[in-house]
Structures are given as structure tokens and as C-alpha cells.
Design a protein around this nucleic acid. Sequence first.
DNA 1: TATGAATGAGCGTTCATTCAT
DNA 2: GATGAATGAACGCTCATTCAT
Lengths: 207, 207, 207, 207
Amino acid sequence: MTAHSDTPARGPGSGKRERILAAAEEVFAARGFFQARVSEIAKAAGVADGTIYLYFKSKDDLLISLFEDRMELVNNELETALEGAEGAPAKLRCFIRAYCDLASRHPNTAEVITIELRQSSKFMKEYDNPRFADFLRRLASIIEQGQQEGTLHSEIPAPIAARSLFGALDELLLAWVLGGGEKFDIVRAADWVGDMILKGLEARRNQ
Amino acid sequence: MTAHSDTPARGPGSGKRERILAAAEEVFAARGFFQARVSEIAKAAGVADGTIYLYFKSKDDLLISLFEDRMELVNNELETALEGAEGAPAKLRCFIRAYCDLASRHPNTAEVITIELRQSSKFMKEYDNPRFADFLRRLASIIEQGQQEGTLHSEIPAPIAARSLFGALDELLLAWVLGGGEKFDIVRAADWVGDMILKGLEARRNQ
Amino acid sequence: MTAHSDTPARGPGSGKRERILAAAEEVFAARGFFQARVSEIAKAAGVADGTIYLYFKSKDDLLISLFEDRMELVNNELETALEGAEGAPAKLRCFIRAYCDLASRHPNTAEVITIELRQSSKFMKEYDNPRFADFLRRLASIIEQGQQEGTLHSEIPAPIAARSLFGALDELLLAWVLGGGEKFDIVRAADWVGDMILKGLEARRNQ
Amino acid sequence: MTAHSDTPARGPGSGKRERILAAAEEVFAARGFFQARVSEIAKAAGVADGTIYLYFKSKDDLLISLFEDRMELVNNELETALEGAEGAPAKLRCFIRAYCDLASRHPNTAEVITIELRQSSKFMKEYDNPRFADFLRRLASIIEQGQQEGTLHSEIPAPIAARSLFGALDELLLAWVLGGGEKFDIVRAADWVGDMILKGLEARRNQ
DNA sequence: TATGAATGAGCGTTCATTCAT
DNA sequence: GATGAATGAACGCTCATTCAT
């Protein structure tokens, strides 16, 4: 559904596009975008090198499509996770927990989003990264809502708070991912950080 | 002074090594490590391609040496900035402000540290990045000190708080750098984030 | 069939590997291994530079594979040439004549074996050159047989005699090849040398 | 004294040219001409890289000059060795023995002459190699003398016999040198080969 | 659709040679 | 003369992409 990749008329359920994306995720996570070889991805996907170009315009497009696809999943899952929550603080807590939980269940996705994302913003200046913008906007709007409700203070612009929160979590995930998931418990750490940020954002009761 | 680069015996003050590092910083910042061409760096430094290899073992070594060199500057500058500050909260504020100030004065350095650093942890598993570890340790020890003083609460382990704080700042810097330094005022944003995090870390007086 | 070169699965009879070997032989003969450019070989073979690396691991591997391939031909042809001959003296004469005949029909092969072979023994200490060892063993075993038959005297160890004989022929071929094949008639010269060596090896009748 | 190398007006007995030649011989023998680095030679000679170019025009010239120099020594030593010998057979025996003895005392010289010589004939078509031609002429003239005396038969042209003899010895030396001088006793082997060739060249008494 | 052999532009690195000191 | 830092042309090899089958 992205604007980037060709979608060849394929037999229903052939799932080749998805297999290629999954393989790309794995290889990008393991080696990094620039170190990853298209032929490695093809092999991991069980297809011929050329087949990749039936589904994606280029290696760049494969990365972008992977972002789009995974960020869509992330956004959807976060949407669902937030459904039960009432009030900005609870929503934020939900968000943080759901995001880290997601990352801990899909470390390769986390690695690609966390590390390769930054690259991409550099090497593809033309790529807007709309889903990531969505993601940030979603987070910011929760904070904004809290500021309007009066549960969160308004000293800091919501987009900046959102960005910092994402940065804090992202760095945590990076440390976790690079440590092989063994250095600490990511969900517990996320709770600590969530508490800290939330406390930092709380409206002062007697103000 | 790094263990990585050869330093050919040469007339004092020739400054060629420094010129190459500066050129590398510029080019890595503009294009990213993998997209940067050694010949571009050479041209930017005003030396021949081969000259780079008199001072650095390889392109990789050039990146690592650049990290080491710049992180040393960062660590030293932060050291100095902290000298006047008393108490963990003031020190943290100083740290944040100094770091962002530094970054806003040297956006290329910020870009390289911020973006290429992460790469490096991936593509050079063997590289320890000791100066960055130093940097994080320094930050963590301020927080720890606050926890021992009682000015900061102890609900979150200091290394995790430090890492999150760095992540928040780093993400902010990334947004700022990618926006060409024009989207918002980095120092003001850093103050906001500093306030937020500090409030989040403050010991609750009436608990 | 060598252990050195990859053989990509391809349509039968594509013969690309052979064309590359032939081109390499030509270029190595004309310029020498170190002066030969991979791109020259590719051009001579009518393939792209990269194609060579589908069939051979490296330029070194190309040389080694060429040796193996040509020495196999030489050994096979000598085998055939010896079939009709009875007794060591006749066999030796056959051997010498067949070897020089072969060389005069394939001067490039001769040049590569004669000149580049020696290089290789130096610059690739790890390369055993098993086919050349075969070749020498074959020659030595003819002499040994003659010594056991009593037609050749036993004052000189067969491997040393074989090596010298090869050296004598090789030097002759070198002179012939460097002279562009025009200075003298190589087959006639080989007969002279064959007679000389055979006379030198003959058992003394009245001893 | 060669036509190839510059001879800077140097302090008497500075011996720098000789030291460079000795170093070149060592390095060429150890690594081969193309693998040898000028800087290695400089280091081995205890001079700066640039200094080599005060004495020799180029790396090629260094090799050529080394040949000239060493072949001159060889020719002189052979001259001396032949002084006492009377008659072609005795002279040939002397020659062979002296040549191998020389080689066993100066294996690096042998290696360079034996292996690098052939290269040079290829990569420097313009280089005549006059001293080596001298060497061969000297050998041929002994044989010719024997043929005129009647002690050696005339079935084979002297230059061809000379060339073969050299090839036989050269191959023997190569095997010996590549075997690290440990596989067999070169002087004994040379005697065997000498006997064989001499017997092969002897005029048949009753013909 | 799918394949994978073939392509060839492009780059990191080397090293013989130069020349300012 | 002697030095050795600097040069930059040159080359082996890689790998994203194409296209004949």
C-alpha cells in the first residue's frame, strides 16, 4: 500500500512481499542497512535476487517500505493499547508500556526503527517518513490533551515533550538491543522512565 | 593520542591530522559515514587521498578516531562547565545546558556523535567506544550523587536515568540538526526538557 | 574441477570459465602475472570485470586455476604420448618430444607454466602445485623404471635427474618463447637435448 | 659503473650504493620483485626511501643494477675458478661446481638470478641483460672449445647445450632454494648432474 | 512470475616517486 | 647529500541492478 513499492499482481496469499520484508528486517537488524546485501536478504527470504525487484524498486525502497509497514503495525498496536485508557497520564503510561512491550517482542523491528531510521533521515532527505511523523504526532496529542485537561503542565510544548520521551525510550531500547536483551529488563526500565517523565510532566497540584 | 591512528613523525603544528579530522567531521555530517567518500574528505582537508592513510589506518579508523577526539572535547568541556555547580540538580542543569550549547555551536560534531555513533556500535562490534561510556558514566554519577544527597529520588537506577536523559537530549538534537537548526531554539528546548526531567527526578519533599 | 574456483550453476556449454582461462593465459603470457590487469583479461574474454569473480575467487585464484587446468592437459597429453613407447629410453624420448611439441603448439601455455610458475611458488607459499609435482613424479618414475630395468645407470637419483631434465627443457623453451619462436626449431633442439641427456643416463654397456 | 644507475658524488667508502643493493637482494629474494616494497628495501638498507633514488633511477633500475652487479661477480668468480682447469671436460666440471658452490654460499643472489631474472626478461623487453648473455656465451665457448678439441661431440650446437646445462643447474638451484636449502646437498647434486651432462656430451671414443 | 548469471560503475587502498627542508 | 611526508594515479574487487530465459 506504500507509494514506493511495486506490487506485482500476485497469486493471493503468495506472501512473497511479506517474506521479503521479514527477511530484510532480519538482515538490516543484524548487519545494518549499508552492510546488508540484497543477495543476503534474497537468500533469507528464499527467493532469487531479481525477485526482490519485482516487489521493491530498490534497496532504498525496501528499507522505506519496511519502515512504513512496521510503523503501521506499531501505530495500530498502540491505537489498540490506548483504547481502554482514560486521561493523559494513564494513556502515556499505556503508550510507553505498549511500545516497549512491542519492542521486546520484536527486537529486530525495534533495531531497524531505532537505528536505521536515523540513517534514513540522512541519506534520503527526500523521504518524509510520514508514519513516524504520525507516531510522534500521536504521542504529542496525548500530551496536549493532558495539558488541556490540566493533568499535565504546559511549561513545555507538547511536540518537544513527545520527542524527548521518544528519545528516552529509544535510547533505552538501543542499549537493551545492543546488550542482546540481557543487560536489564526493558519493560521494568520503561516503567521507571515512564514514572520519571510523568512526574516531570504532572501539573503541580498547588499551582 | 588515540590507539587507532598512526601519527607520522612530522614538524610540530603541521596540524594535518586535525585538518583531516575536521574535514571528516564535515563530510560525515553532511553525507553519513557510508555515503562519505574518502576522496571527498581528502579534498575537503586539502590533502591527497593517500595522505589520509598516513594518519589513519582506514576509513573506519578515521571515524573511530573522530569519535574519540570529539568525545574527549565534549567530556572536557562538560567537566569545565560543571566546575561552578553545587548539588546534583544544579549540576544536571549545567550539564544539559552545556551539552546543548556545545552541540549548537558544533552542529557537525553533534550530528556525527548523534547519528554515526549508533552505526558504529553496530558495524564495529569490537569497538568499545570508551569515551562515550565515560560520558554516560559521568552523567550517571551526578544523578547517583543526588540520590545519595537526597536531592534526587532513588526509584530509578542512576544509569537508566542517565541513559534516558541522554536519549531525550540526543533526540532533540537530532530533530534540531535535521531541521537545519531552524525549527526551534535548541537551548530553550533543552531547558524545558531539563526542567521536566529534573522535576521527574526530584525527591518528593513531603513523602 | 579445481578446488579453487567457484563454478556457478549455469547452462551447460556456456564455456565462460574456459574463455576466461584462455584470456588469462593470453594476457599472463603477454604481460606477466603482476603486470596483467584483471580488466584486460575480462576484455580479452569478452566478459565484464565482475564476471571473472563469478568463476574465480581472485586474481591469484585465476592464476592457480590456470596452472591446474593446463598442467592437467599437459599430463594427459603426455600420458597419451607415452602409450606406444617401450622401455625407459624410448619413453624419455617420447616425453621430451611430446612436451616440446605441446609447448610449440601452445606457446602461451608454455610461457605461463615456464615463467609464472616460478613466481607462484614464491608468492603463494601455501600453494602446493600438485599437478606440477605430478608432472615431475611422472618423469622421475620413467627414469627410475629405466634404472631398475638396467637401461639407465643409477649413479644419479631419479628425482634429481628428472628435475634437471625438466630444467634443461624449460630453459630451452624459455629461450625459444622469448625469441618469439623464431630463433631456432624447438623440436629439433629438444631432440638434441634429449639425445644428450639420454646418452648421459645410459647404462655403460661394458661396465 | 652500470649505465643505469646514477652515481652521486659520494664520500669515499660511504658504501651506500652497495648497502642498498644488498638490501634489495635480500628483499627481492624474500618477497619477489613485484611484492617487494621500495620502503622495505630502504629500511633494510638503513636509508630513507628517497635516498634510493639518489643512486638508482627507479625500482626497475634497482633490479637491473642488481643483476648487473651480481652477474659481474659471478662471471669474475667463474673466471677465477676456471683458471687451473685444462680441457673442456675439466672446465665444465669446474664451472658447474663453482656455480653451485657460489649459489650455495649466496642463496639470495641465486634466488634473484634464478627467479627474478625470468621476470625481468618479460617485463623489460628493452633490457638486454648483457651480463647474463656473457655468462651463457662463456659457457658455450667452453663447450665449443671441447668440440673443436674433439673431447666433446658436435651433434648439438654449443649454445643449445650451454643453455640446457644452465637450465638444468638453474632448476636444481630453484628446487634447492625453495626447499630452504635443506632438501638435498646442492653441490653433490650438481656433481651428479655434471657427470650426466658431461657423459652426454663426451665424444664417443670408438666412433 | 521467477530466476540468477551477467554487468560495470564506483571506491578504498597502495606505493613508486617527488621535493621542500 | 639525505630525509620522509606528501602525492595521486592506478587497480582489484564489490554488489545493486538488469534482463534473457
